[in-house]
Design a protein around this nucleic acid. Structure first.
Lengths: 358, 358
DNA sequence: CTGAAAGCGCTAACAT
DNA sequence: ATGTTAGCGCTTTCAG
């Protein structure tokens, strides 16, 4: 932590040139066995740690991929950690973020895991972005300039910012659509997924009265809704207004339907998390699922598997999505130019109890 | 992706010097409003993205903290966590890492989350290390040289490697003990936790015949075992041999005890994961928990909350541990030298059903 | 308030 | 097989 040794120090200590030191680490085959040993010994003795910033600068690439996620536990981020010492009692008694097991792992976590595994497998490091404020600035000034490629979750950044970054490094967004932007897209087959759900509900359960529910509106949610509506139209089922709720307003929304006596036969939800919230709210309002009404999700997160009733849903190949992103970024950052800028991965339906099966 | 614009390009386009460009971003107060606008306009037009490697090199610090974790999934082949418990067969999905919901989030995930949140709050980026092979080499050649501080999970790296790295940047290990190494330690209060478990088992349930179970042996596990044994000795309870099992051998081990008719009244486990494996194995051998024997865990991971029976355990303040690590690293990397190199955080007991309560 | 210029530590031609 | 050396792009005194 004082002045750290550099290639020059190692070179001097080993009685060789800096080039030889560099080769010893970067290109061992180019130095004689004996000299290499001398260099390594000197490096070890001095406690040499190569400066990767300098290396990246000289080489023109960083060996790092960025993943720009959001963290929905951000609210907890304001709690402060006392600088050293022990933790006040109050920090322990209050709930920790994971007290609700449903929060983890969600879609994002599984995609991230796939991304990590692929990066590590390929010898890349990962830099995790997630800063809350000044997002669009910081991604340019803090992240983009130190990675060879960047994967971002949707709705985090203005298209303009992404385009800016994409002028310099390959970018892949976990969302559908390749219109305009000069970056890649990876997404699951929302349309097929929704078609499976719709036909299951209609064919297996003979239902024909649905309400589509979503929380935050995004490209995926819209695609799913569109696909669902298409199936209904194709079958001559009448469309009902969607239920788009803001956080925490789901219960009054459902309450209204109940009071009006217009509860549908099934709530088709834009995501598993939405579905679980709907099921909870319905339960609190005295409406059993699937007894009185069916509910379906989308994503296939773990929470839907361990909930009661189990959630009927469509599972995205989340870790594959993450792996593929890393793969595409690595390929493109090293010059390979394939033209499949948009990839849609297949999904699979999982039937559990919430639709009325089993 | 062609030649990216640099400060020189921006400076030329804006008709100023590179110093002014740099100041515009790094120290906006030093440039006149009007020139700053000219520079920003030029930067935007050219699609300028500052090269962070160059910045880090020039400044001597990176604004990045490293977290060197291991990934459960890397070991999925040799280490299996049972999928029994409450999860019906039909809920399992094949081929995806998250098929076993018990795998997430574990201790490591929660610590990591806390680390991330604190880093982001403080304006630091995170680099995630996890490469499986050549660990001790890669941490030196690939990670240490590009971060301002490094947090590592225990048992991943030889002390020698950590010491090497610690000569250059502050290092904190998530384990107890500050003997020798020149790096920090953060851990939970293993002793108090085990004392709580021991006295609960003895006072509330009147038990006096225990077997301590652990899988991988590490500092934490040893500390917990020592504390447990101390309590027993202090109470005049006779000590029985520990049960240290290798992955997948837990069932035969337990089987042996059963056949010998020497099943204890309670299995006190070194971690929640161990406890869950023990409960599963006992169940498979026809020994109900807590009916015939009590079982306790340690950690407080989510899996223990959603399992059947619920796991009686001690919860570590995991996310606080992660936050504190980031906090200490940031402080030390910026020269603050506090002397509390070892921090022990308080724990809390969580009584659920596996001990016989409820 | 702005410019000139000396590094930061490493890499990779190009020489020897 | 090894040495010389010119950058890589940015920051930051020090002058002006």
């Amino acid at each position: 932590m004082t002045k750290s040794p550099t290639v020059y120090d190692v070179a001097a200590a080993a009685g060789v040139s800096t080039a030889t030191v560099s080769f010893t680490f970067r290109n061992p085959g180019r130095v004689k066995e004996s000299t290499r040993e001398v260099v390594l010994a000197a490096a070890r003795k001095l406690g040499y740690v190569p400066n990767v910033s300098a290396r990246s600068l000289a080489r023109g690439r960083t060996g790092t991929l960025g993943l720009f996620a959001y963290d929905f536990l951000w609210n907890a981020a304001d709690r402060r950690v006392p600088a050293g010492g022990t933790l006040p009692e109050s920090h322990l008694l209050q709930g920790e973020p994971y007290d609700d097991f449903r929060l983890f792992p969600v879609y994002l976590d599984e995609v991230q895991r796939g991304f990590e595994l692929e990066c590590w497998r390929r010898g890349f490091e990962i830099i995790l972005g997630g800063r809350k404020d000044g997002l669009s600035e910081s991604i340019i000034t803090e992240i983009a300039g130190r990675v060879d490629g960047l994967a971002v979750f949707p709705r985090r950044l203005p298209a303009e910012t992404l385009a800016h970054v994409a002028r310099r490094i390959p970018v892949v967004e976990f969302a559908s659509g390749d219109d305009g932007g000069d970056y890649c897209h990876i997404t699951a087959d929302n349309a097929s997924g929704m078609e499976m759900i719709a036909s299951h509900l209609m064919s297996e359960h003979g239902l024909d009265d649905f309400v589509y529910v979503s929380s935050a509106s995004n490209a995926d949610s819209e695609e799913r809704r569109g696909a669902f509506n298409s199936v209904l139209e194709g079958s001559g089922v009448k469309l009902r207004p969607d239920l788009a709720y803001a956080p925490a307003t789901i219960k009054p929304e459902l309450s209204r339907l109940i009071d009006a006596g217009t509860l549908p036969q099934a709530f088709v939800c834009a995501s598993d998390i939405v579905a679980l919230e709907v099921i909870d709210a319905l339960g609190a309002l005295g409406v059993p699922v699937p007894g009185s009404v069916a509910v379906t999700g989308f994503d296939g997160v773990v929470a839907g598997a361990v909930s009661t009733p189990g959630l009927t849903t469509v599972r995205q190949p989340m870790s594959e999505i993450g792996r593929l992103a890393a793969d595409m970024l690595i390929a493109r950052s090293s010059g390979e130019t394939s033209d499949n800028k948009s990839v849609v991965l297949p999904v699979r339906m999982i039937v559990r109890g919430s639709c009325g099966c089993g």
